[in-house]
């Protein structure tokens, strides 16, 4: 296997007054070509920021303060905005939670799909033909007629289909899907997840799902990266992550979910305290103040270390955990 995407010590900060406040604290991550990976974490974990940084889409006051993003061996952080634009949409594409933020409300949906291709040098006539095929492929009924509609005339699910058509028009090698179904009804969610997964197979795309939904994770991905307070705390094959979590935060997160087969419906496990605020970072392990397994060593930040088939950033191995 070859690495398609490599993040090395990726750091993102927010400008605040004259100071910089670091929010993503050095993410190391390698995604092999063809893998399907989930990046999970709660709000403020830095999962979406990390992926926006990959795409070079951080907007002021957010900015990259260190590290490298290599796509197919090429460091994207060294590229000009013009060169980056040539890569975005062509080699790597992203779909978001709310399609209204990336669709132009004043432009017919068909024209937007065409533009996703002409921007990368596809002749207009060819782009027009492919647009109709693309709309049909993502499940838009009667593409000839609907291509002339504006985004506001579509339901949320249909808009998401259009965004998928735009993102996949150039057959990118890497797709980043950032909570693409969170705002949709569950039956529509299932349709969109199924569609993206089908297209992923068809195009052989490497796919990164950014999500908080561990059900989606269990069903769709090979490997899971867990983020907490701007750090990767665990990175493991999906079955290992659920059956033998190697970080106390992962274990606590899984325990907070209701067990759909338990008829006694016991209270859900809680995690005491809150994640640290970006303004008030924790010294050492970021999970230490909330961790039931914390020991003195945790005052020093643990590096990601090999654990079974994955990696975890914890000084205390699971066989030493107290209950």
């Amino acid at each position: 296997m070859t690495a398609l995407l490599e993040l090395a010590d990726l750091r993102v900060s927010a400008r605040s007054g004259r100071a910089d406040r670091e929010i993503v604290h050095g993410v190391d991550l390698t995604v092999e070509a063809g893998q399907t990976v989930a990046v999970v974490g709660e709000s403020g974990s830095g999962k979406s920021l990390t992926m926006l940084a990959v795409m070079g889409l951080l907007a002021d006051p957010l900015h990259l303060t260190g590290g490298a993003v290599r796509l197919g061996g090429r460091d994207l952080t060294a590229l000009s905005e013009r060169k980056l634009r040539a890569i975005r949409g062509n080699d790597a594409a992203m779909i978001y939670q709310d399609p209204m933020t990336s669709l132009n409300p004043l432009m017919r949906v068909g024209d937007q799909v065409i533009e996703a291709m002409t921007a990368h040098g596809v002749p207009k006539a060819e782009a027009g033909r492919r647009m109709l095929d693309l709309l049909a492929r993502v499940g838009i009924p009667d593409p000839k007629r609907t291509a002339r509609a504006y985004p506001h005339e579509f339901s949320g699910g249909m808009r998401q289909r259009v965004m998928i058509a735009c993102a996949l028009a150039m057959r990118p090698r890497l797709l980043i899907a950032d909570e693409p179904t969170t705002a949709l009804d569950v039956t529509i969610q299932q349709q969109i997840l199924a569609l993206i997964d089908e297209l992923r197979r068809e195009l052989g795309m490497t796919t990164i799902w950014v999500t908080h939904d561990l059900g989606v994770v269990a069903r769709l991905v090979d490997r899971v990266v867990v983020m907490y307070a701007g750090h990767v705390v665990e990175d493991a094959p999906v079955r290992q992550l659920f059956s033998a979590p190697q970080h106390p935060y992962t274990k606590a997160l899984l325990a907070a979910l209701p067990d759909p087969s338990d008829d006694d419906r016991p209270p859900l496990a809680q995690i005491p305290g809150r994640p640290p605020a970006a303004t008030d970072p924790v010294e050492g392990c970021p999970f230490r103040p909330r961790c039931s397994q914390a020991v003195d060593a945790c005052a020093t930040r643990p590096p990601l270390q090999t654990r079974m088939q994955g990696r975890a950033a914890c000084w205390v191995p699971p066989h030493e955990w107290r209950n």
Binding site: T187, A194, G215, V217, R219
Partner: peptide, 26 residues
Amino acid sequence: AALRAAVPAPNPELSQPIEATVSGEV
């Protein structure tokens, strides 16, 4: 039944088909 099937359980050991159980929109 479709609503139930549309929500995947957080358990990778289960075989949970990805195919949409209900087509179309409300």
